[in-house]
Design a protein around this nucleic acid. Sequence first.
DNA 1: AATGAATGAGGTTTCATTCAT
DNA 2: GATGAATGAAACCTCATTCAT
Lengths: 188, 188, 188, 188
Amino acid sequence: MILLAAKEVFAKHGYHAAKIDDIVAAAGVARGTFYLYFEDKRTIFAEIVDRAFARLGMAIVRVDTEDPTRSVAEQVRGNVRAIVHELLADPATTKILLSDAVGLDAAFDRKLISFYEEVGKLLASSLEDGQERGIVLPGDARIFAIMTLGALKETIYQVLMRELAYPEERLIEELYGFLCRGYLRIPG
Amino acid sequence: MILLAAKEVFAKHGYHAAKIDDIVAAAGVARGTFYLYFEDKRTIFAEIVDRAFARLGMAIVRVDTEDPTRSVAEQVRGNVRAIVHELLADPATTKILLSDAVGLDAAFDRKLISFYEEVGKLLASSLEDGQERGIVLPGDARIFAIMTLGALKETIYQVLMRELAYPEERLIEELYGFLCRGYLRIPG
Amino acid sequence: MILLAAKEVFAKHGYHAAKIDDIVAAAGVARGTFYLYFEDKRTIFAEIVDRAFARLGMAIVRVDTEDPTRSVAEQVRGNVRAIVHELLADPATTKILLSDAVGLDAAFDRKLISFYEEVGKLLASSLEDGQERGIVLPGDARIFAIMTLGALKETIYQVLMRELAYPEERLIEELYGFLCRGYLRIPG
Amino acid sequence: MILLAAKEVFAKHGYHAAKIDDIVAAAGVARGTFYLYFEDKRTIFAEIVDRAFARLGMAIVRVDTEDPTRSVAEQVRGNVRAIVHELLADPATTKILLSDAVGLDAAFDRKLISFYEEVGKLLASSLEDGQERGIVLPGDARIFAIMTLGALKETIYQVLMRELAYPEERLIEELYGFLCRGYLRIPG
DNA sequence: AATGAATGAGGTTTCATTCAT
DNA sequence: GATGAATGAAACCTCATTCAT
């Protein structure tokens, strides 16, 4: 399938270094077949990114602070787990999201920023919810959300790019712990 | 000066959309003159990134837990302040670092990863130092470093790309607070 | 029917802008079906032109200067009328003949020139006949034929392309008059 | 010079069969050089046609029926002579005008029709002038103009395409005679 | 040192045609 | 007979780089 082949090629070479020829060769179809299904290179790349965003969007569940069946801790961990799992399960796509799609062009930057803004809003509103219940420390929820997102993105990015050998569960625990406690205990 | 012009053009359009013509037009020199000073497009871009990395590298100072004149808190805040300031003082370069330089090609990815690895090592070793003194919570210092870097990068990235109106000092405080406490206080 | 659909599409868009897709869409058949009936795009276009030429060829009747039942004037008018009628009755085909088929490629140019040459020969021989009988002024009958053909072609071409609103009979009279008298009466 | 080379190539192969490669080969420059001076194939073709139209437009002079120094006959002959000369002097361009530029696409058709319309208007207004002075027979001057144009175009077209060996002066005389007298003398 | 006209490799895209179903 | 998914040759055009002046 062309989309799959394209995903691998983009992940391997990056957007610009990936030639249509590479994609069709990987897919085992003729050049024309590519253009039968996708308008152009940009379009298939956007398709890959959009699908990934859609999957990720579905992996994130709003935290319900009043849910009697699942503690907030469980729900937060669950979210972190789902996202980390989604990202690590398909490294090619994740590399595309975190590396190739970044700084592609102005229009694509807007798409990325827009997605992260949505995620940020969802997270921030959960955090504000938590702040009302005293579960979340006072402070700017929007920035909390951004920093959380950044910690997560960078962790996954470096794990993938540097091929760091951390088990998934370990990353989840570290991220969760970081959110709960930070790490600095400055005396006095 | 050509380098300055190139910086603005790269920041505005991104690496690939930036044409040599745009750069020389912005610099007010002829096309040939560009190649008198820079080997090629890649080289001038790398030069911009390398200089930025050098400046950033110099902004970061190893935390000395035994310095009697400056508390650790002060030193950490000072580091965060220096980095944030450096990044916000030259938004064009920062946009290049955080957006355009990402996913450019395999070689450039290595350069980026390598810089972040260096920064991570420095930070991690400070953290390990702090752990011995009980100032830093136990845990994987390398991951702490990565998450810290991610929180910082994403904050600056979104502030620049979304033109969020946070005063510099505010961002520093939020980042510092996040490192110290996280934000979650999960009951029970 | 495919030929009909092709005729309309060629007339509307011109040979090169007319895509096989447009033709089969207009004909309501699948792409493959087209190639069941026609070798290729060139062939169906040539078919349209050839049929048109055949019809036109049949519309032209050699003038018989000795026919006791129809005067020469009647016969000439009849020829002009038949040709004009044939051309205006099927504007799509006429546009193809006078516009799309012109300058298509070397081979097609030869086909056109060859048809016009045939028509010219027929006309010229009638004119020579008339010259012997004093009905046609002395002069180069071949050039008379060419100019007559040109006047006719241009008139129809402009009527079609500019959508000039001349009634058929009017055009016939003007053409006939032009052939009989020219229009200049240069004094002295 | 590229324009010259393009003209020859277009005249020889026709618009569509003429490849940019043919043009640059004929011009002895690299492919990129072509695009340095001309936007694309269409543009250089239009440039050739526009220049030809401009030259032809300048060759045509409005007939002044009151000019005491040149008789109307002289002026008409002069016009025919100028146009025929212009067309025969540069056969490549003329072939382009009369063959390749025809039916190229809708936009180009409009350009052609528009030029012929202008020429037609100029001629028609001269003819109307002549009608007032009794020099031109009564009748639709617009159609006279069209038929005149057609006779001229077709004559030149066939002379070029069939390589008919008529001396220039001969063609001028035949055309002039045709306009003055037509050729039919239908008895009774 | 500075220029900018010329270069041409390299990539994208189109669309007439084929052929297995 | 009919279909339409697949083909791939062919052509266009861009733009980083060179080099004679």
